[in-house]
Amino acid sequence: MHDAARGDDAAPFDALLLLSFGGPEGPDEVIPFLENVTRGRGVPRERLAEAGAHYELFGGVSPINAQNRELVAAIEKEFAAHGPALPVYWGNRNWRPYLADTLQRMADDGVRRAAVLVTSAYASYSGCGQYHENLLAARAEVGEHAPELDKLRHYFNHPGFVAPLVDHTLAALERLPEQLRAGARLVMTTHSVPTVTAETAGPDGNAYVEQHLETARLVAAGVARALGRPHMAWDLVFQSRSGPPQVPWLEPDVGDHLVQLHEDGVPAAVLVPIGFLSDHMEVVYDLDVEAKAAADRVGLPIARAATTGSDPRFAAAVRELVLERAASVRGGHPDRCALGSLGPSHDVCPLGCCPDPRGRGAGLRGAALLDR
Rank of each mutant, 00 (worst) to 15 (best):
P248S: 03
P248L: 03
V247C: 04
F276P: 02
V266E: 11
D253W: 14
G255N: 13
S242I: 01
P252M: 06
F238Y: 13
P245S: 10
S242A: 15
P267E: 07
L250C: 12
L271A: 11
G255D: 13
P248K: 01
E263Y: 11
L261R: 09
L250E: 10
R241Q: 15
Q239I: 11
H257A: 15
L250D: 07
V259E: 15
W249N: 05
L261A: 07
G265R: 05
V254Q: 00
V266W: 11
A269N: 06
L271G: 04
R241K: 15
P267D: 09
Q239M: 09
Q246R: 15
Q239H: 09
P244T: 14
S278N: 14
H262E: 14
Q239C: 06
G255R: 14
E263D: 13
P245Q: 05
I274C: 03
P245K: 00
D264R: 06
D256Q: 14
Q246Y: 06
V270Q: 10
D253T: 06
L250N: 07
P248V: 05
S240C: 05
I274S: 06
P267M: 05
F238L: 10
L271W: 08
D253I: 10
S278Y: 06
F238G: 08
V266P: 03
H262S: 12
V266N: 03
V272I: 10
P244E: 13
Q246K: 14
Q260C: 02
P267F: 07
P273K: 07
A268Q: 10
E251T: 12
G243N: 02
Q260L: 12
V254G: 05
P273V: 04
H257E: 15
P273D: 03
W249P: 00
A269D: 09
V266K: 02
P244Y: 01
H257S: 14
D253L: 13
V259N: 07
V259C: 12
E263V: 11
S242G: 14
V247K: 04
S278F: 09
L277S: 03
A269M: 07
V270K: 10
V272K: 03
E251A: 14
S242R: 12
G255P: 00
A268I: 02
V259P: 07
L261K: 04
S240E: 06
S242P: 00
G243H: 01
R241M: 11
L258A: 10
L258V: 01
Q239W: 08
I274K: 04
E263H: 15
E251P: 00
D264H: 01
H262L: 07
D264A: 13
P244S: 12
V272G: 10
P244D: 11
F238Q: 02
L261G: 03
G255S: 14
F238I: 12
R241T: 12
L258H: 03
D264T: 14
F276R: 08
L271E: 08
A268K: 02
Q239F: 00
